[in-house]
Each structure stands twice: as C-alpha cells, then as structure tokens.
Design a protein around this nucleic acid. Sequence first.
DNA 1: TATAATATTGTAATGATTACATTGTTGATA
DNA 2: TATCAACAATGTAATCATTACAATATTATA
Lengths: 136, 136
Amino acid sequence: MINIKKILEEKGVKPSHQRITIMKFMLENKIHPTVEVIYENIIKELPTLSRTTVYNTLKLFELNGLVQPINTGDSELHYDITLDLHAHFKCIECNDIFDIDIVNNDFLDKVKDDGFNILDTQIYFRGICPKCKEKK
Amino acid sequence: MINIKKILEEKGVKPSHQRITIMKFMLENKIHPTVEVIYENIIKELPTLSRTTVYNTLKLFELNGLVQPINTGDSELHYDITLDLHAHFKCIECNDIFDIDIVNNDFLDKVKDDGFNILDTQIYFRGICPKCKEKK
DNA sequence: TATAATATTGTAATGATTACATTGTTGATA
DNA sequence: TATCAACAATGTAATCATTACAATATTATA
Ligand SMILES: [Mn+2]
Ligand SMILES: [Mn+2]
Ligand SMILES: [Zn+2]
Ligand SMILES: [Zn+2]
C-alpha cells in the first residue's frame, strides 16, 4: 500500500483531497489519460470536482516532476505517470497508447556529441497494435 | 531549377497559383514553418491570400504525401517538407527546430518484432542548441 | 459561350485550454 | 475557540488554433 500523501509532499505539493484522488487514479490506471478521462473517472467519487481543478492539478504535477505530458498529435494532451525514458505507440484502431521500452539509448550520445543539450526526449509511433492487427 | 508544378501534379494535386507559391516557400525555407509563418511570408506576394487557404493547402499536401506535420507540443502545428525518417530538436532559447539525422534505426526492428505495425515515427528533443549553449 | 467542377475566400463555429474572480478550506495564532 | 491569512477549488468567461460552411471566383470541358 503506497502512501500517496508522502509522494506529493516529497515533491513539494500539498496533499489536498482532490490532488490525492487524481494522483491515485494516475498510479492505478497507467493509461496515459487526458484531463477529460481523469475528470470522467473521478467525478463519481468527488461530485463537486471542477474540470479546472483537474487542469490545474496536472499542470502542477508536471511542474513538480510528478507527471509528464504526452503529445500524440490529437487535440487533447495526455499525461503519463511513468517518467523514465520510454517510447509510445498509439494504435489508430483501438486508440490505446502502449509503452515501448527503449533497449539502448546510444542514439542520444550522437546528439549530445553534436553539442545539443537535451532536456527532454519524446519518441512516438503511430500504427496498428498486435491485437488489432490480428483481428484483420 | 525545380519544376514545382510537376511535383504537385505527380502527387495528384492541381497546381494552382496559391499551391505553387506555398510549395515554393516550403522548398526554399526548410524551417518547419507553421501556417501563420507561411501566411506572413507569402501575403506580400499574394495579397488576397486567405489563412484558410494555407490551412487547406497544407492539409491537402499532408494527405497527398507532400509534407508531414510536426508536433512540438506548443500550440501551433509545424510542417516539414522533408519526409524521410529524421528527428527534431527544438531549442528552448531561440525556438529553432533542427533536423537530427538518425544514424541507425535498429530500434524500429524491436518494435516490429513485438507485433506492432508502424505507420509513422516521430522523434523529438527539447533543449538548448549548440549556438545558444555557447552564448552562456 | 455555357456549364460544371474545383479552388479561394471570409466569417462563423468549435473545442481544448487558460485567466480570472469568487468561494471554500486549512492551519497557525491569540 | 474565534480570527485571520494563506492556499485550494470552483465556475464562468476569454483565448486562440483550427475547422465548417457558404459565397464567390477560377478553371476546364463541351
Ligand atoms: Mn508511457
Ligand atoms: Mn525536419
Ligand atoms: Zn489496437
Ligand atoms: Zn538555440
């Protein structure tokens, strides 16, 4: 049983009821949700929740290194609770976003050697996932 | 001297005056421009040009494999006339977007082996470019 | 030329996100 | 415990890139 309160406090985020509930959802549902998805799932538990609070909270989490934003090119921004370097695969059939391990990151060295100071790396694939491929 | 009309026709795009001018700009300025940047640069030459036409034209180019959209996470979409697989580096100081060669793409094989059918690959770095790094 | 097909234009609508003002909550202090 | 300040949550209005749509212009065809 993880202590969500402690996780927030360690990053300097005051653990309000809403923030704890949102962080709990992120930790228990690693599906790269959008603000809307988070809102729809939590509103049952927190009937007075405002969409603005979800927007504010995710931005606050991002600012304090608790989540990272994932831009898949569609209109809504996704958020990822997993912070270590990994790629994403978005299936155009089922719309799921899969985590893809990066086995070796030698390709970063080449960029650094060329004098670029890398602060963030995003690798993103679009295509058809194994499950949807089989269905056809 | 390249024949822009032919480039468009080969992809099944009728070479109107506006489309030729926009394609010419893309070919002569490989800066990953946004719709707004394209519009601001071409309006001098085509005073009656509408922003909507630029939006429509770029979408048409994209649909016909003449450009690819580049999503850097900021509000506006960028377009790239270079279509072969390469990465992008956006400098947070000067906001320039640099092309980064991908020396080997073995990492794609791993994903394909896992049963994913890749249709598009985007690799994106954020950080500080060599020039801006030197200035500090 | 007449007519149909296509392209361009300008304005209005959309929709995700942000700004802002108000209200609510918490925690320290007297 | 009552007061007060700091902070958080809420709801509505504004923003802004993009798209939808209808009107007009241009081009191609007969
Ligand atoms: Mn992920
Ligand atoms: Mn490029
Ligand atoms: Zn799928
Ligand atoms: Zn720079």
